[in-house]
Nucleic acid binder design. Structure first.
Lengths: 347, 347
DNA sequence: TCCCCCGTCTACAACGATGTAGCCTGGCAC
DNA sequence: GTGCCAGGCTACATCGTTGTAGACGGGGGA
């Protein structure tokens, strides 16, 4: 069927290895030889067989990205960024969805696809405290997010505590005092939920506002739907918030929706701030104030660290922890936007 | 480093081929032998080297999914569905982002990754009329969407014309007469834009409403931002619409945002309907009426057809065209929702 | 003049699995 | 007792590439 190096070699009148050398850019080849080989490749429409190269070299040119779900916009946008960053480096990305299921996350770390990829960028959700050892694997891994902290592994993360504190301070500066949180994971300490809640508490404390347990809205999965549900519960339980800090944008948008369905005005009655800076938040009504956690920076840093690991002997790589820069994007869900000019309206 | 079949064979005291036979479920193996081999596999923590198997068998267990962009929610959700459907069949999905760039779409069809995958599910945007021949490739392909129609290729698609007609009829039934379209590609006939516009025109015609060119809002890329821009242009050019049919949900949400920023009430002043039924539309304010084009059905059908192609000789596979079922999801952007009970509000 | 080195190229053996062919053993029919 | 067959297993070649070692010819330094 498809042409192999053998066919090219015969047509060009050289050895197979010379074809290989041409393909791989080996320098010591006479120009005339190189031209003949390239002509033969062109004529036969030859394509390198990646599987064979993989077998021989042990490298695949593929890195895996394991995320909970692509239908969560943050992870879709993260995947987009990772694919772009990897493409620049000539790498292909294989996306694994773990569905936040522990068993699938374990599979990713130990699984059969290891031979198919040169490394893994891993954004765990289900694995947690006590699972640190599982990350000590013998292939390149970069961890995203906040779940685990073995120092032996590269780690790219957000400044969760600081950013959450800044988000809360933004609400406090607006005069809000009854600030609800949506997406709390009770008892969690090291995960994103725990850290962001800690930032929230720091800000309240600094402002001398007591923490009211009734304002803490639980939500296991961080979807739009769970954000709406948590918001509904807060309202029905009489928490009477004047602001909401949703621990991610998807929940913030769900909460925003729920507030408006119930006739509450945002931001006048309740201000809402999210976390992630997904594109969607720019187009909600009102648009969503949020924390930009530096997604692109996280993606490109993760790819860079992974490549460094891939290129160095395991022993000589010094694991790093990188914190991306963050910023608060102030939009209409906390600050009343300039009154719009009412345009021509049809009669 | 990692154990190979050779190591397992030595430990179990059998030949390499017997190990291979055990791994592949070959039936004629004594129970005691099988047990010994399995024990050895377990002890050595042996993992099959996929690259080697690929080289030998020519199969990889990977299928490629080529989409324009994961940051477009429809494609993120489609990818999610395809990954799930493929996983059920024991296949891994490699996602390629083409960024709607013609050159990247060509690469996907002819590119080097062919050796890495057993087939391709391809959602083209940039390729168009005249490119039909490019799809006659010698490996399994299933095409999604509306761009090209060679009968020689499997094709899973939406009922674009009918669904768009139904969407427009929904608006007409609500008494709207000046229905703007957002996302028009002037001159296009076979693409999603062309077909959906055709459905729109059919509906107007059937209702005896003349088509007003000024109501056709152009947008090349179908993002939230382009939807908002097209909406702004329509309003500024004095088109005075009383309804908007956005050709996808992302643009619909952009348009919705733009309308509200300008102080227009949705649906009272302008009704909005989208197309795609992305999750996000359930949580906008108001929630978005849209066309559900049967995304899950499309994904699972595409995977099924691809597997059929992979299993049969090229000659004996009869290409099919499958149209997914659609439905209209009526929500708050066209129909005023039941007035919400105003809950306890903080003083 | 001789030797070495450099540029250019080739032969051969691997990478780790699987397909093919065939060996051996025991049981059964004749 | 012989022949045959099926079950259970093995040896070997092979997939298409790349790493290693080394061949070869010509130019420059000793």
């Amino acid at each position: 069927m498809a042409a192999t190096m053998h066919d090219v070699a015969r047509l060009a009148g050289v050895s197979i290895k010379t074809v290989s050398n041409v393909v791989n850019g080996y320098p010591y080849i006479r120009e005339t030889t190189r031209a003949r080989v390239l002509a033969a490749i062109d004529e036969l429409d030859y394509q390198l067989n990646v599987a064979a190269r993989n077998l021989r070299t042990g490298r695949t040119g593929i890195i895996a990205l394991a995320v909970p779900e692509l239908s969560l916009p943050y992870f879709a946008e993260l995947a987009d960024s990772v694919i772009e960053a990897a493409d620049v480096q000539g790498l292909t990305v294989l996306i694994e969805q773990t569905g936040s299921r522990r068993e699938r996350e374990l599979e990713v770390l130990s699984g059969a696809r290891r031979h198919l990829t040169d490394g893994l960028i891993f954004s765990p959700l289900a694995l947690g405290a006590g699972d640190e050892d599982l990350l000590r694997v013998d292939f390149p891994v970069v961890v995203l997010g906040e779940r685990m902290f073995p120092d032996s592994v590269d780690h790219v993360t957000m400044q969760n505590v600081e950013a959450a504190r800044a988000a809360t301070e933004h609400l406090i500066a607006l005069g809000r005092r009854r600030i609800a949180v949506v997406g709390v994971h009770p008892g969690e300490v090291v995960g994103s939920a725990g850290l962001r809640l800690a930032g929230y508490q720091e800000a309240l404390e600094a402002a001398g506002i007591p923490v009211d347990e009734r304002l803490l809205g639980e939500a296991g999965l961080w979807h739009r739907a769970t954000g709406a549900e948590a918001m509904a519960r807060l309202l029905e339980d009489g928490a009477e918030p004047d602001a909401v800090f949703a621990l991610n944008d998807a929940m913030a948008l769900g909460a925003l929706h729920e507030l408006q369905v119930r006739g509450l005005r945002v931001p006048q009655d309740v201000a809402v701030i999210g976390f992630d800076a997904i594109d969607e938040g720019s187009y909600s009504n009102p648009s969503l104030t949020t924390v930009d956690p530096g997604r692109e920076q996280i993606a490109s840093t993760a790819v860079r660290l992974l490549i460094e690991q891939m290129r160095s002997r395991p022993a000589e790589h010094v694991p790093q922890r990188v914190y991306a820069d963050f910023s608060i994007l102030e939009r209409g869900s906390t600050v009343v936007e300039a009154p719009a000019v009412r345009p021509r309206v049809h009669a």
